[in-house]
């Protein structure tokens, strides 16, 4: 039975804490290691895994994620590898989403992608460059296959757009903490808490915060007001900090610290 992101977040909530969501691109540094990295993250405390489908023109990604995606593409990663990785990671029991720009899905065939993702045990998609207004085909396919539809909101989103996005999403709404691309920052945007509150007021059941969340302290802070804490660039950097087992160990340690950070907020 596929575990949805909503179930994972609700279980964390039942434990009195926010969920920890970790992003890792498939194929970085190679397909096998990226699958191993996702398993490592789950073992170290990630509730939800976002597997990135590398794309040649990642307009919303900062240097760390963009370079990892390019390295994965240079290594020959294919869309089929991502679906294979989903199958492997979902088998751990963690909710497993794919994060992807829209064109690879469009090219694969939106309905076919949804079918194959569901068959692989994937929970759904996070679509950083697809707004609900343009997502008719994806929404229909996701509904047909019972997949999560995770759309993004940003500090610039109007109340009307927050309502539209909350209504279109299933699983959770991804709140971009700040105006900008993915990447580590010294502090999480101060507008994030306000955005979470506005998104909830617009009807969202669950709101997770990403972009710029990179340390245990950030995780504690964000877990204090959001349903989930999303970490991407910091995880990718830890994995890439050393080859082989050392990189995996660094990732495991980081995820462990982030999980402790999330739990600290729950205990407070």
């Amino acid at each position: 039975m596929t575990r949805t992101s909503g179930a994972a977040i609700d279980d964390a909530r039942a434990q009195g804490r926010a969920a920890l969501v970790v992003y890792l691109p498939v194929g970085y540094p190679d397909v096998a290691t990226s699958i191993e990295a996702a398993r490592t993250a789950v073992a170290a405390g990630a509730d939800v895994v976002e597997l990135g489908l590398p794309y040649s023109d990642p307009g919303m990604d900062g240097p760390v994620v963009a370079a990892a995606a390019q390295a994965a593409l240079d290594g020959g990663v294919r869309t089929a590898d991502v679906l294979h990785a989903v199958e492997q990671v979902a088998a751990t029991g963690a909710a497993t989403l794919v994060m992807t720009y829209y064109n690879p899905v469009l090219r694969y065939g939106v309905e076919t992608f949804a079918r194959d993702l569901a068959a692989a045990g994937g929970a759904g998609l996070i679509t950083p460059d697809l707004i609900p207004d343009e997502a008719g085909e994806w929404v229909a396919a996701a509904d047909a296959h019972g997949l999560d539809k995770v759309f993004l909101v940003a500090p610039s989103s109007t109340p009307e757009r927050l309502e539209l996005t909350a209504a279109a999403s299933r699983g959770f709404v991804y709140a971009a903490s700040t105006m900008g691309v993915t990447g580590e920052r010294a502090t999480v945007g101060e507008r994030a808490a306000e955005l979470v509150a506005r998104t909830r007021a617009a009807g969202a059941e669950r709101v997770c915060v990403g972009i710029g969340v990179s340390t245990a302290e950030h995780a504690t802070e964000v877990a204090g007001y959001a349903d989930g804490v999303i970490v991407g660039s910091a995880a990718v950097r830890a994995l890439g900090s050393a080859p082989g087992p050392d990189g995996l160990a660094a990732l495991g340690e980081l995820v462990g610290r982030l999980r402790a950070g999330v739990e600290r907020a729950g205990a407070a």
């Binding site: 307009g59 460059d129 707004i131 343009e134 909101v153 940003a154 610039s156 989103s157």
Partner: peptide
């Protein structure tokens, strides 16, 4: 055509 961009740009 259309607008296949991050939500952050929609307001602009």
């Amino acid at each position: 055509g259309g607008r296949f961009v991050p939500e952050a740009l929609i307001a602009a």
